[in-house]
Design a protein around this nucleic acid. Structure first.
Lengths: 341, 341
DNA sequence: ATATAATGTTTAAACGATTAAGTTAAAATT
DNA sequence: AATTTTAACTTAATCGTTTAAACATTATAT
């Protein structure tokens, strides 16, 4: 690579010290009382050489990298990809750049990522934390490294977070099914102690308990993240074969929905006649599944916006109290959960 | 933020010079003939203080940031999100971190992104270049900054690139429709001079010309990136109302497919009976549209892998010749383009 | 005329790490 | 005993920037 143009090169070309060049290019002419003519000459030379300040050197000096570390489960998951995009845009507005990494819901990978990003001196983190990463979060707290959790959080740890009301959303979704006449409503969720999943499960369970329709009992199936597709197939298969008839299915995430719906298609089950469906999260697919799908629409953009806002604020005012934001989701009702006759 | 632990801190705590600490922690004890005992002490202290080397300082010294800049049109587009994920994984294997940015197919944003990333001293770029960014690419070439183009490239500029054979894929897709008996095949593409789009259009046009079925004429509709959804609706609307009957539609990208299919659904057009469909790229949706969709499956993972491989190689051996990779796509044939009776 | 102030510029230290070169003391060789 | 070698460590320069402090001039005030 060609040697890049540095302050020194400009200084030499113009015949002044690097200090002067620095002052001028940082618009500190007044404070530093730089001469008008020479400032112009410096500016011209900088433009002529297409000088691009070395952000790394700046960061070293200032102790600020203007970088945000983003850790999500999987950047290729549309849910996180969408959040990432908004975070990118909002970060840019504040002159921050985003470095991202996918944890795959794996605590060890999450730790590795955190280390890499800390070494790179990110000014703060936005994290969708994985199970068993409490220690990592505690470490950030202890080190006073600013961070904001999204999507999930740890109730026992005091942190910033921006999440949606998962209990409420799941309760609402389940109630909607019940009110529409469905009696055997199953839920497919991830096997996870993470709060967002637990809250969704609680919302589902509570809704079923609250509506004192005798025939409606919770039917919860939990699948492992790493073999979700296979386990879903098995669960649904056994549901069908086992004579355990269900009339509605509530999927706890977009990925689960996709796996499940694919398999239901395979099995020639018709929605909503054979089984009604409600999904969590969006997917382009949901709009034009043969039967438009009812789903919980989380305010992704708002989550991302608030997270960046809180983080940037925290970075510039470190002594702030923790900010916790709970956002509401919308239940988008469509054909897949229509009233039984 | 708590002051971070530096080499100096360890040196002071142990009572040696920073040089010694650096040698030990970089496993250069032999070359530097560091004492066995003291090396142990240093290592222990480093672990005890949870020392994380400051990558920024390293980068400044070494002139290498071990960072790859990734510029795509939109990270929230599944096509790019998937590529991004593979790039992330492959980069990590080579100790690189990825900084990303979305250009929104806008040359100015692309330029801004490039500047930001250059200031951050990325060691190289992976770019899905936007229209009118020839100057930016030329600049990279002139500055000897390593980079690899993906998805698109500029035929008149000598660069590394990894792309798929868009002409072939489109030709194949169109021929498939013709062979299955469709006679009025329209294509919806982006209004763009970018090679990937032009090749897809050429493939379509050529296939139609080659198959000397008189009744088959090219019917090409080009929509602007910024108002794609609306324009597609208008185009399809006018196709329907204008009495210009079509019996098949070929969408040039996943996003176009989604917009188009949504609208076809709205208009109650049945696939494939009213109109057959072939799409470019994947989407979860394509698996379980009421009528499983025929689509061109690009080897995304391979594109990303090769791109990282070429880039990393180029970074370490700058004088290399340009590498150009052309990959084949698969046409996944399903119900949406089945034979007419 | 001389002290003081204002103006314009340079010097040098610092950020945290690396590393060639220098120093010192002990061990080996003559 | 004098010299050389080896081992174990330190010094100091460097990467590109920032910025307080120092240093010259020239202008203004007394």
């Amino acid at each position: 690579m060609n040697k890049k143009v540095s302050l020194k090169d400009i200084a030499k070309a113009v015949g002044v010290s690097t200090a002067l060049v620095s002052y001028v290019l940082n618009n500190k002419e007044k404070e530093a009382r730089v001469g008008k003519q020479i400032a112009e000459v410096i500016r011209k030379k900088a433009a002529e050489l297409n000088y691009q300040p070395n952000q790394i050197a700046k960061s070293l000096k200032s102790g600020k990298s203007f970088t945000i570390g983003l850790i999500v489960a999987d950047i290729s998951n549309p849910f996180f990809a969408n959040i990432a995009r908004t975070i990118e845009d909002e970060a840019k507005k504040n002159n921050y750049t985003v470095i991202f990494g996918s944890s795959d819901e794996n605590a060890e990978k999450s730790q590795d990522l955190m280390d890499v990003l800390i070494k790179r001196q990110v000014d703060g983190f936005i994290i969708a934390p994985t199970e068993h990463t409490e220690a990592q979060i505690n470490y950030l707290n202890a080190s006073n490294i600013p961070f904001v959790l999204i999507d999930r959080y740890f109730p026992e740890i005091k942190t910033n977070y921006v999440i949606t009301d998962n209990f409420k959303a799941a309760y609402q979704a389940t109630s909607h099914l019940i009110n529409n006449g469905y009696k055997r409503i199953a839920m497919i969720a991830y096997k996870s102690n993470l709060i967002h999943m637990q809250e969704r499960i609680k919302g589902y369970t509570m809704a079923i308990k609250d509506h004192k329709v005798k025939s409606v009992k919770p039917l919860l199936f939990e699948v492992a993240y790493d073999h979700a597709e296979l386990e879903i197939q098995k669960q649904i298969e056994s549901l069908i074969n086992g004579g355990q008839t269900i009339d509605a299915l509530f999927f706890a995430t977009n990925t689960l929905s996709i796996y499940g719906l694919k398999f239901l298609n395979n099995k020639r089950l018709k929605i909503p006649d054979d089984v009604a469906i409600v999904c969590f999260d969006e997917g382009d697919a949901f709009d034009f599944f043969y039967c438009p799908l009812t789903y919980v629409k989380q305010p992704l953009i708002e989550v991302a916006r608030q997270a960046v806002k809180i983080l940037v604020n925290q970075i510039s005012h470190p002594k702030q109290d923790e900010t916790q934001v709970l956002l509401d989701s919308d239940l988008i009702i469509r054909e897949s959960s229509r009233k039984t006759k």
